Simulated scan of single mutants.
Amino acid sequence: MLSRAFFIFIITVTFSNNLFAKTQNCQELSIPITFDPQGLPIIELSINDVKHNVLLDLGSSDGIHLPVNEIKNISGLKYTGNSVKSSNIKGEVFESKEFLISSFKISCAIFSNIKGLELAPWAASIGEGNVDNGAEQIVIGLDFFKGKSITINYFDKTLLINSADKKDSSSNVSHLSNAFKLTKEGISIGVNSSIASYQMILDSGASSSIFVANKVSPNEDVKVCDYDLGPDIECKIFDSTLKVFGHSFDANILLFPIDERFKMDGILGSDFFKSFIVEIDFLNKAIALTPIQNNSAS
């Protein structure tokens, strides 16, 4: 699992909204998204009648990460006896105890058998300065949404959660015709330049997209940048247009020597989610993108 790659040189405005949930026979929830100072998506959930600001992190394969001091307040939570190791983009390794939550309720929607971990402060920052490592931040990841479909819309600042047997007729996404692979590192989708093809992980817990430096074709156009990435790391940015399911994605994607245990070619972070409305059907492993014409969601 790889998640929450923070970049201190990307700062966005923080918005503030209250939780709003609309129900259609309890098949749909609409939850506002706000953004923290690193531009990462925050949703407000009520857990045991206590409101929490929760990070939406598709870079985590697990359902929920809870600070130890919150675990005792969750009913129906049982430890499995297993410990899980994970690492961040710098190769730092963390070990967390695993648990299961039998039933989890948001508004009238039930989320069952959610796998979770004690929260480890895995956040990695690149460059100078200090970033909160999120040691007390509740995080929800992929397993939280198993059997459901979600629509992430940064432009409208909403997260829609639908039961898998229902399609939202008001959605801006017209179809789910593209397949994705669910790997141990997350949702993998293919992107293409005019030179090569790459497999990238969707990571809403990353404040920017990243390519693994040594996996980018030497024939790609790259440009030198002036961010301080750390000792002996040359700053380079991918300077070619990518195609994602037929759509163009123009972004300055940083090249970084991500730890070799990460098997994909890179990460699609906040800049990607600001460019597309992303609908994901977890039951059928299908995905659709709708370009955001005015990608100023921050």
Rank of each mutant, 00 (worst) to 15 (best):
S217N: 15
Q24I: 15
A206S: 15
S60L: 06
D250A: 11
I114Y: 01
S61T: 15
N172E: 10
L29I: 13
I280Q: 07
I287Y: 02
M1V: 12
E260W: 01
F15G: 09
C26R: 13
D232A: 11
G205H: 06
I152C: 05
I187P: 01
N113E: 13
I161T: 02
K274N: 07
K236E: 12
D165A: 06
L202E: 01
D203K: 07
F94P: 05
M200Y: 04
G134C: 14
D281F: 02
L29A: 09
F245H: 12
L229W: 09
F7M: 11
D265R: 02
V68C: 04
N73Y: 10
G59A: 04
S46L: 08
F144Y: 12
S248A: 13
G127M: 01
F245Y: 14
K51F: 09
E28Q: 09
Q27H: 04
M1D: 13
V54I: 14
L142Q: 14
S83K: 15
N178M: 08
I89R: 08
I280L: 08
G129F: 04
K184N: 04
S60V: 03
E28Y: 09
S102P: 01
N17A: 11
E234R: 15
D36P: 05
G246M: 07
G134K: 14
S197L: 00
I233K: 13
Q199C: 01
E44C: 05
L268Y: 02
F9H: 15
F273Q: 03
D62C: 06
F145P: 06
L229R: 11
P121V: 03
F7H: 15
I74P: 09
G116V: 03
F256M: 04
Q199T: 02
S193E: 02
A213H: 06
A123V: 13
I292M: 01
H65N: 08
N284F: 03
G147L: 12
S194V: 07
S103M: 09
V50P: 00
E234A: 14
T12F: 11
K285F: 08
S194G: 02
I126T: 10
S46Q: 12
P37A: 03
K157C: 02
N172W: 00
S275R: 14
S204G: 01
V244I: 15
V68P: 00
M1W: 10
K157D: 01
S171N: 06
I233R: 07
D57S: 12
Y79K: 11
E95G: 04
N294F: 11
G129P: 04
G59D: 01
F111D: 00
F282D: 00
